[in-house]
Amino acid sequence: MSKQASLSAKNSVLSDFKEITKMRLSLSVVFSSMAGYLLGADTVDFSILFLLALGGYFMVGASNAFNQIIEKDLDALMSRTKNRPVASGRMSVNVAFAIACLFTVLGIGILYVINEKTAMFGAISIFLYTSVYTPLKTKTPLAVFVGAIPGAIPFMLGWVAATNHFGIEPGTLFAIQFFWQFPHFWAIGWFLFDDYKKGGFFMLPTGNQDKGTAKQIIMYVIWTILISIVPVFGFTGALQLSVVAAVIVFALGLGMLHFAVQLYKKMNVLAAKHLMLASVLYITLLQIVYVVDKFIR
């Protein structure tokens, strides 16, 4: 094999690894779990932080690999997913299944080294995403509600990793990311509506790009904003938020609400894309504000 061919093969393997683990999504999950850890830890243990990042990546990678095996025929029908390794035929189902199983064992095993509760929530996340959310996607828009559960676990997982305890604090972190996911995923479902339709996925709450869906998006944005500022009132135990931080988070929420209202007014793909980007910016900045506020308060 020539040097160029060898380099091309290595690039292909790396590209397929990124695709089957959905690297960008996995890294965002790692970021959320690390933010949760920093919020829960009295003193930061960087070895635990590293294990959490590694275990979290494998956990999400396993879920995504199983998902792409189950949906390989449907992925092949959609422009967005037809070039995924399994759907395109570049990777066999057997190889993908071996990767998914390996990632599951590594992910849960590494999280177990941190503590048993962290491993348990990691296992629940993989199970719900793979065995409940994925099969439901072609059957009912309620799949988004189920998918929001494993999607909300990472922020909470970090706190549990830091404290080995589940209570009001990680429950609040879970609630924030749980409600946030509805406007986020429905915005994606809106601008990818036609592509999803090719694969038989109907992700919007009413099944259509209509006023009913837009109203529900606005409602869930409002719920997200309200839950995100709850820690300022002192109801959430050790999870606290200063007034200044709460004002910043509230302002970020109003920014996301603006784009949700714009979607309701314009009812078009561009408005949905703007809302999706605003939602990503919101949850990222919220987590940064929460962490910074803890360490400077």
Rank of each mutant, 00 (worst) to 15 (best):
183 P>T: 06
184 H>P: 03
184 H>K: 05
184 H>D: 08
185 F>Y: 13
185 F>P: 07
186 W>Q: 02
187 A>K: 05
188 I>L: 15
188 I>M: 12
191 F>I: 08
192 L>Q: 14
192 L>G: 07
192 L>C: 14
193 F>W: 13
195 D>P: 10
196 Y>M: 04
196 Y>Q: 05
196 Y>E: 01
196 Y>T: 04
197 K>A: 14
200 G>S: 06
202 F>Y: 12
202 F>R: 11
203 M>T: 11
204 L>I: 10
204 L>C: 06
206 T>S: 15
208 N>H: 14
208 N>E: 15
209 Q>G: 00
214 A>C: 12
214 A>L: 06
215 K>H: 11
216 Q>R: 15
217 I>G: 01
219 M>I: 13
221 V>S: 08
222 I>A: 13
225 I>Q: 04
226 L>Y: 04
226 L>H: 05
228 S>I: 04
229 I>C: 10
230 V>L: 15
230 V>P: 03
230 V>D: 05
234 G>C: 11
234 G>K: 11
235 F>Q: 13
235 F>R: 08
236 T>L: 09
236 T>G: 06
238 A>W: 08
242 S>H: 00
243 V>E: 09
244 V>Y: 15
245 A>E: 01
246 A>W: 09
246 A>P: 07
248 I>W: 06
248 I>E: 09
248 I>F: 13
249 V>C: 12
251 A>D: 04
252 L>C: 05
252 L>E: 02
253 G>F: 02
255 G>L: 10
257 L>Y: 07
257 L>H: 04
257 L>M: 12
258 H>K: 14
259 F>H: 13
259 F>N: 11
260 A>D: 07
260 A>H: 04
261 V>Q: 12
261 V>T: 12
262 Q>D: 13
262 Q>K: 14
262 Q>C: 11
263 L>D: 03
263 L>K: 02
264 Y>W: 02
267 M>Y: 10
267 M>K: 11
267 M>T: 09
267 M>I: 09
268 N>A: 08
269 V>M: 06
270 L>E: 15
271 A>V: 10
271 A>G: 10
271 A>Y: 06
272 A>T: 03
